[in-house]
Design a protein around this nucleic acid. Structure first.
Length: 548
RNA sequence: GCGCCUGUAGCUCAGGUGGAUAGAGCAGCUGCCUUCUAAGCAGCUGGCCGCACGUUCGAGUCGUGCCAGGCGCGCCA
């Protein structure tokens, strides 16, 4: 559709013998009265040709008229400084609606990603405590992107990287041991930087129910391996359950431990060493990251011989690239942004194409309740968990609110608004469209007017009807735009637009009670709307209810 | 000090590769339910797009410099 007009304009440019370097754009004007499409071609070309832009526009318009053998252009006009405004025939939009009805749930699906494999790593919170609201945003964004990429033909692997190695796990084990000892009636102090959240006490209680006081008097160093593992495993299980409740599932859970056990960290280090990227100072092994764009060189092996977290991460990304993914997408919290340059440096140091890696930094979330920010602090264990938010506002509202904002900006998550089951809540506004259409279909069925055969779409002539057809037709472009920019928030915004148009139509016109032909045509239109709404909602992981 | 993100209506935010009169929700004010779901519709009020230069036919959008907020700058993960 767009491409049709575009190529026609392009062709004219070529006929003039101009180099095609001129940047000509074709866009959907903000103002409805400026047509369905608009191009600035004449203004771009006028300077080059040394002619008046309106004169150039005249020539392009007449050329377009010749080109248009199938009568797709309802009108072509020149406006302002030389814009060419194009109005497509209503027949054109009916054709697109027909396509939407034929394709159903596959409408908007594409093959742009065919043959491409994408690895999406997201959340990957350390297994030291339950997921909080910030993780929820990463989960919503990562999952939505995965769904969008799949819909556009990519082969997607979703992965959770588990940081189950390092000081923090010892700390976690000690914290659990301490809580456990207290429950057993022994005295015990929490470690200095121990995890002091309420959940640790619950974990200790659960564990004690299973093993009794067996470890109560075992020396800490001896008990530690057991407690470290128990704590990590149990917390990870909780994370997995929370994510499942949030409708987020993974294809793989990748443990950092495995990288070490399989020798992948050593292999990555050896690789870098061979490429001359390492050197030693003060007993530690450094990576020459500064020369590759980082602000300074980074330690990979500490003076005491242990590898750093960064070393494992280098190995992890090297491993993923070697699996052959066309593209790696890492979704991180904004607090990790300083880490990006060193990781890119690592890829370059390994001789890999750093452009295969895309890191998306998701900005922070502030919970708002009754107009005031809810304070959070992971250290003291006082934070709002994802679970609590889900219990309070529900999965649909939570996912929707997380995705309603571009992840580049801070998110104020208004719990009070998300929770209201009223007209104020935009989730319901959209879901209501779906429920209303289903209701209409039920009623049509009951009256023996169900949709069948080939509805006479030529009866769709009212402005509200044409606007809806255009909105439905835009869906494939919205989806592919999301896949290109990796910006899922465009989906909810599109859905809100469609919903606006539908509710306006619904209020002004009736589906049933018109002539049988008109009823058929409008039911077809409703089905088209239902299709894109259901499809769009599924893209962001929100349900499309049949009734509300 | 350096780096990343952000600055648009009272509040929260949209504004495809620069385009024509800058949009939505909330909040506030008016109207509309004997008709397929009022979780809805129609309307009103509300703007120096942080500030200043620059690029050009044309800037919320691009560049530079300020100002403000958030987040980072470990042989932690």
């Amino acid at each position: 559709m767009e491409s049709l007009v575009f190529s026609a304009v392009r062709k004219k440019i070529a006929e003039w013998g101009e180099d095609a370097e001129v940047s000509v754009s074709l866009e959907i004007p903000r103002q409805e009265s400026h047509g369905d499409f608009s191009t600035n071609a004449a203004m771009q070309l006028a300077g080059r040709l040394g002619k008046k832009s309106r004169a150039v526009a005249e020539e392009i318009v007449s050329a377009l008229r010749e080109e248009d053998r199938r009568g797709r252009f309802a009108s072509l006009s020149i406006a302002g400084p030389g814009f060419i405004n194009i109005v497509l025939s209503e027949e054109f939009w009916r054709e697109v609606l027909t396509v939407a009805l034929e394709k159903g749930p596959r409408f908007g699906a594409s093959k742009v990603g065919e043959g491409k494999t994408v690895h999406v790593e997201f959340v990957s919170a350390n297994p030291t405590g339950p997921l909080h609201v910030g993780h929820g945003r990463g989960a919503a964004v990562g999952d939505a992107l995965a769904r969008i990429l799949e819909f556009t033909g990519h082969k997607v692997v979703r992965e959770y990287y588990i940081n189950d190695v390092g000081n923090q796990m010892d700390n976690l084990g000690r914290s659990l041991f301490s809580r456990y000892r207290v429950l057993c009636g022994r005295s015990a102090d929490l470690p200095e930087d121990g995890y002091r959240g309420e959940y640790m006490i619950e974990l200790a209680r659960d564990f004690r129910v299973e093993v009794g006081d067996r470890y109560a008097d075992v020396p800490e160093e001896e008990a530690l391996p057991v407690f470290r593992k128990e704590a990590g495993d149990r917390i990870l299980r909780g994370i997995r359950d929370d994510l499942a409740s949030f409708r987020v599932t993974y294809d793989r859970w990748f443990a950092e431990r495995d990288l070490h056990d399989r020798g992948l960290v050593a292999a990555a280090l050896a690789d870098l060493r061979e490429r001359g990227q390492l050197y030693e100072t003060d007993g530690a092994t450094y990576f020459r990251s500064q020369a590759l764009g980082d602000e300074k060189d980074r330690v990979l092996i500490r003076a005491d011989g242990r590898t750093t977290y960064f070393a494992a991460d280098v190995a992890y990304h090297r491993h993923k690239l070697r699996e052959g993914f066309s593209r790696l997408i890492d979704i991180w919290g904004a607090d990790h942004h300083g880490y990006v340059p060193r990781l890119r440096a690592a890829l370059r140091g390994l001789g890999e194409d750093e452009n295969r890696l895309k890191v998306l930094l998701v900005q922070f979330v502030t919970l708002i309740r009754e107009g005031k920010a809810v304070q959070m602090s992971t250290r003291s264990g006082e934070f709002t968990t994802l679970r609590e938010v889900l219990d309070e506002v529900g999965v649909d509202a939570a996912r929707f609110f997380y995705l309603l904002r571009s992840f580049h900006t801070h998110l104020d998550f208004d719990l009070t608004l998300a929770k209201t089951q009223s007209r104020n809540n935009p989730v319901y506004y959209i879901q209501y469209v779906h429920a209303r259409i289903c209701s209409v279909f039920r009623e049509a069925e009951a009256q023996g007017k169900a949709l069948n055969g080939h509805p006479p779409l030529s009866l769709l002539v009212f402005p509200e009807e044409v606007r809806l057809m255009k909105a439905v037709a835009r869906f494939p472009d919205v989806v592919s735009e999301c896949a290109k920019t990796l910006e899922p928030h465009r989906i909810p915004f599109y859905l809100l637009e469609v919903s606006d148009l539908f509710h306006a139509f619904y209020h002004q016109h009736r589906f049933l009670g018109e002539s049988p032909e008109r009823t058929q045509a409008r039911l077809a239109l409703a089905l088209g709307v239902k299709t894109v709404v259901a499809s769009g909602l599924s893209m962001i992981g929100v349900t499309a209810p049949d009734r509300m």
